[in-house]
Each structure stands twice: as C-alpha cells, then as structure tokens.
Design a binder for these strands. Structure first.
Lengths: 205, 205, 205, 205
DNA sequence: GTTTAAGCGAGACGGTACGTCTTGTCTTGGC
DNA sequence: GCCAAGACAAGACGTACCGTCTCGCTTAAAC
C-alpha cells in the first residue's frame, strides 16, 4: 500500500524506491518461491541498501505483508459474461490459469501467508477483499431471477464454487484439470438451485 | 518406518532413534511451526547428533517428507455413523477440530508442503491417500441407495463436501464456524442428488 | 565555551545547548566508557537533535576533543601544603583517587585520546597544561631552599614523581596502592637531592 | 596462545588458520590502529570466513586478547650489557624505538587494552610478565655489588626507570627525546643509591 | 514592517560492522 | 561399519551506529 495510513509498515516514505522494492519482491517470489526470498536479494535487485529495507519494512515479514496487501489493491473485477454459471466458470478459469507457472507468485503468496501471524492476517484480508468483490456476481444473479428470490448467502455460494479449484491447485498441488472450472461452477449452481445457500431467518439469529 | 516408497533417505539403519527423531520433528512443528523447525532443535530434543539427522534424512526436507509420509500411515478410517450426510458432517467436524490449536501440526504440515517439490509431492500423496480412504463413504451411499444408481464421481463429491472446510481453515485462516461442517456436507449431498457428480459418457470424450 | 583555539567546530552559536551537550558527553563517558559513547546517546540525553551535534561538533571526535579541552579549563590548582615532598605526595594522592571508580571519566578520556590524531593532540595539550600548572610546586621548592640553588628541570622532576602513578593506574591497571603516592614522591625528591634533575651546561649543547 | 589450556578463547582448534589470523590482526592493528580493526577485515585478509573468527575468538575483544597474550610469548630477554645504569638505558632505548612508527602496534595494543575488562586484564598480564623478565637486571646489580646489599624492591626501581618513557610516549604522545632513556635510567639509579627502593622490614608487614 | 537568512528540529538515506543462527559437508576417533 | 563429536565454509538475519542530506519552521537582524 502506498497508503500513508497503512498501519502495517513503520514509515514508508515518499522515496521512489518503494515501488521498485515491491516489484523486486514479487519477482523474487515468482522466481525462487517464498523460501528463496531474502532481504539481501531484494535489496540488491532493487538497487537499494539492505539497511533501507529493514528501516522501511522492518523485516522479511514486512515485505511479504506489503506485497500481499498490494495484491489486493489492483483494480480487479470479476468477469461479467452473462449468467451466473458462466460467470463462475470464468472466475474459476482465471483461478486455474494464474498459478500455472511453477513456482508462481500465487503459490508463493500462499506459502508466505504461513510465515507469521501478521502475514496470515494480510492473507485473510486479501481473501476477504476478493470474496467481497465477487459477491456482485451472486447479487446480479439474484436480481435477474437466476436464483430463488429468497436471500442467498453469496459468500457460501462463492466458496462452494471456487474452493474445489483452490483445493486442487494449492493444497493438492494436482495438475490443472481443464474441466474442473466448469464442473465446480455447475455443482455450486445446482446446489444453489436446490436451496443449499438459502438463509433462513432462524439461522441468522 | 523404512517406508519402501521413500526415495529420500540414504540409509535408515536399525538404530532406535528413527522413531525418536520423528516424534521430535512433530513436536517441533507443533510447538514452533514450520519455520521454527531446525535440524539442531530436532537433534537436540531427540538426543541424537545433528550429523546423524543429515546422514539419515539427507536434509531438512527429508525430515519433513518423512513426517508427512508418516502422517499417512496411521490407521485412520473415516467415520461410519450411518447416512452419507451424517458421515460427511462427521468428517468435516474432524477436519475442523484438528487444527484448532495454533500453531498446529496440521497447519505446519501445510506450510511444510511448500518447502520444495519433494515435500509438495509428499503432501499430494497424503491427500490422495486420505481421499482414497474416504471414498468408501460414497460407495456405501451408492450401494445403500442413498444416491442415484448411476455412477457417481466419489472424489469430486468428497472434494465438494470438504473443500470449503479446508478453504476456511487453511487458506482463509478464519475462525472455525461450528455450523460449517454440517452445511458443507448438506450442500454436497444436495448437489449430488441433483446429479452434479454423475459421470456422463460424453464427458469422458 | 567557544574556545578560540578550537579548530574543530564549524560554528558554535549562542544556543544554550553547548554546555548541556558537554555535560552529557562526560556523563556518557563516565557511565559507559569511551566505546559506549554514541552521538545518539549524547543527543538524546541532552535533548538535542542528533543532527545538531554533527552541525556543531562535526563528528564523534569533535565531541571528545571538546570535552578533553574543557577538562583543561577548570580552575584547578596543585596542592600547596608546605614542603615539596608533601606537595608531590598530595598531588599523587589526587591522581590516585580520581579514577578509582571504573569506568571513570579519567580512564575514558585516556581511551578517547587514542581515537584519532586530533584527540591525541587534545590530550597532549591537556597534559602540557597540567604540568605547566604543577611546575609552581618545584619553583616554590627551589625558592624556599628546598632544592639545590642550581636550576632544576621542573618538568622532569614532576614526571619522575607522578609517572609511576599513572603507569600503575592507567597502563598496568593495577589496584591502587595506598603507599605509592608517598613513595613515588619521596623517590623523586631523593633523586632531585642527588642532582638528577639539575640542568648542566654541556647537556644543552 | 597456541596453548590448548588457554581459558581465554572458546575452542581454538588445530587448524592452520589460527596463526594466519593472528598475523592479520597484528597487521590491521599496525596499519589502521585499534579502531580500524574489524572482524571483517581480519577475516578477509586471513582468507577465513567471518563466522570462523567468531567461532574461535568469540568477538573483536577475543582477537585483541589473543594478540596481547601472544605478544607476551615471544622469547624476549632484557639487554645485558654490563652495569645496571647501562642496562636500564638500553631497556629504555628499546621502549623508545618500538612505537616510533605511527600508528604502531604498541600504541594500538594500549588503545585496545581499554576495550573491555578482559582486554585490560590481558594487558595487565603482559606488563606483569614484562616486569618479571626485567627484574633480573636489578637482581644482577644487587649481586654484583652495584647496589646496597640491603634488599631492593626491583619492581619499583624498574617502574621508576621506565615509567617516564611510557609516560612520554604513550600518554603524553610527545616526540621521542633521544636523551630521555639515559636520563630516566640515571635518575632511577641515583634514587636507588639514595635508598629509595630499599625494603624495610616494617613495611613488608 | 516586512523579508531574509541563520539556527535548529526532524528524519530519510546510504553505508559499515557487528554478532547470531542455520545449513550442509567433511574429518577424526572410539567401539 | 556405525556413529558421536565437532571443525568448517557459506550466507542470511536483524541491529546499531555513523555521517550526510534535504526539508521546513521560527526568529532575529537587515533593509
């Protein structure tokens, strides 16, 4: 975050090296993976003195948090190609394609999130933001009559639709299955049609 | 365990220290997390010389692989309490309870799986084994008429049922939701009833 | 003190902080010894910004020189209790008592004098001043008939009388010997009586 | 000390680098003075990894102690040219000549001795050893009738004879005076002849 | 009476050295 | 031959200082 209110970092001044460092952190993560990330490497690549990195990001964890947070700031929007089914499929395809290069930034960020409590929280923020952005897909579908008029738990639907993808790619580390994005989307839509994500009054108590 | 599949270790002689070391690796992982694991720490706790660890497990990755593999060798069986829905719920509850303490062994193993290609493969083996064991749940349900007689893709059903749990706990690092195990199980069963996991001929083309 | 001899400082304006800083330098030296002296510590204690210290004293060496020079400006006079023997003994006693606490300012100043050529010169100035002040002791003795009427090299006599003290305390770092001040004084007086410090014509050739 | 009993250092193995490192410490001290000594510089010059230096000498202080101690192990003997007066003069001349190069090892060792308690003790040991070796000069003189037959405090005599030299060179940092060695020796001998260093019974109580 | 320069607080910045901690290899010597 | 012991090379880590610099604010003197 270039955001000066950022409570994560300690001082992060206006110096032009901030962006430069961030780029190099991402590069190192993508090239060498989380464990290959070193303050030394980043500093050298960014042509900044190692001490500077410590001053501004405190330690290796700070770099990670910064990059994870920065990942949430790109102006991404979920696909909007029409129907819910298609949108979820497209979403899944995006997920599937992103970490196709090994080691990828996406996987490295996952690994990084295990580094410390703070990186874990950053990762949690990132996911929360991502799901918040995706909820519009579900809301659109409800509005267009694609779903039961009763209130649907968008977050659960989205998780049902996308979790299998993340599961396969990140946890199982299986090779991508080209049919999985569509299948998982359809499964979620079927379940939704069957009322699986309907919010009952008494449950919300 | 002198696991015959284990291509990692160079020799693993009869010394009684093998089990001792494994126990300590697990203890260190559970206590200090993946990043806190050091050969020194393990060796000291196991009262073995550090060189011994390198001789037998080659390097830190070897220790991790060994422990991940060992995790797949315990004689675990999925719950069998009756109906598919109940079984899946029970399964999810087990998942939810395991990593409740932070840092836990389960989470540490996840983190460890990002260490290298080899630990990733060990983790993949572990998941494969786990799903294989769980497939019996689905097969029983099909056999008992709980599901459509047409062939059901057990693996997909299981992933649909459990992925949301792993997603919440491991990736989102959210606080456990006591209702989630049941909900995710029900969602998967609803989807299954709607034919989401039915294998069609044309799909295999 | 805006010492006119001081070639060190670039400017030393009227701000009241000059004295404050000097006091803190002395305090730091006495408390933490020469190696423990930092511009940061001094600045903080003196409630002055670190940059101010650099502006006015140029660098750490400047602080040291300043303090060494300031040590020569206190209005000290050698003891005058009567006879040469007694005066020298009293002088030695003063020497012996000053650095009795370790680490002391006196020892820290000695250490500081090794810092650079410039601090060494400041230290030399300090000694020169000290001996100049002490020469009165010898001159009085000559005048009062306590010594041979021929001209006596006061400086040599003083060094002979006090060097053993400094040697023991500063170089040998031995524990103070309560009898040493008197003994060293007597030795010097005996040598003086034997003509050891008499200046002969032929020697000046 | 190559002495394996050495309680100063922590392990100091048989590796051939020990001597190499010591040589480089001395070289650095002589070239750059005490403050210019860095573990980094020494390690690089000795072609040893920096970590090795820390392993074997613990820290910068360890290096200093080692070198100070080593300085006491060279097989030096005081001059023996005949009479006490001449011997003391020769001794003083040796002192005067040693630190003639600035910065010299001798001065650097002095500065180093202020580094810590431990280096100070090493320096004290060095002086004690040096005086012990020099006492033979006085004993010879007493034996040959050069001095009063009553017992003479050799150490005090030696200090009286040499302290002015050290004082001038190390503390006052004055330029060497070519006549000083002889003068200081004569002064001490005169004082001795006058009974300045005679040990009285009651004093030794 | 402004304005303008110095004094000074604040802190970013580049840089050196420190001492610690791991990792993984290799050698030596006892059983 | 197993293995305890530990030396060794390598390199990252995070900290503490150092000394330089550029901003701005304020305040006293110059115009």
């Amino acid at each position: 975050m270039t955001n000066p209110l950022d409570t994560t970092s300690d001082h992060r001044p206006g110096g032009g090296y901030t962006a430069r460092v961030r780029v190099q952190v991402r590069a190192e993560l993508a090239e060498r993976g989380y464990e290959g990330l070193t303050t030394e490497g980043v500093a050298t690549r960014a042509e900044v003195h190692r001490a500077m990195v410590y001053r501004c990001w405190r330690d290796a964890g700070g770099l990670l948090i910064d990059v994870i947070d920065a990942a949430g700031e790109i102006d991404w929007q979920p696909p909007n190609t029409g129907l819910l089914r298609g949108n979820l499929t497209a979403l899944n395809q995006e997920i599937q394609e992103s970490p196709v290069v090994r080691p990828s930034l996406a996987v490295a960020l996952m690994a990084a999130s295990f580094h410390s409590e703070r990186t874990a929280r950053a990762q949690t923020r990132l996911w929360a933001d991502w799901y918040a952005r995706c909820e519009i897909l579900v809301e659109r579908a409800v509005g267009c009559g694609g779903l039961d008029a009763r209130h649907t738990d968008a977050r659960s639907l989205l998780i049902a639709a996308t979790a299998p993808l993340h599961h396969q790619l990140v946890l199982l580390r299986a090779d991508p299955d080209p049919r999985l994005p569509k299948r998982a989307a359809e499964t979620a839509v079927l379940a939704a049609a069957a009322g699986a994500f309907t919010v009952h009054r008494e449950e919300s108590v």
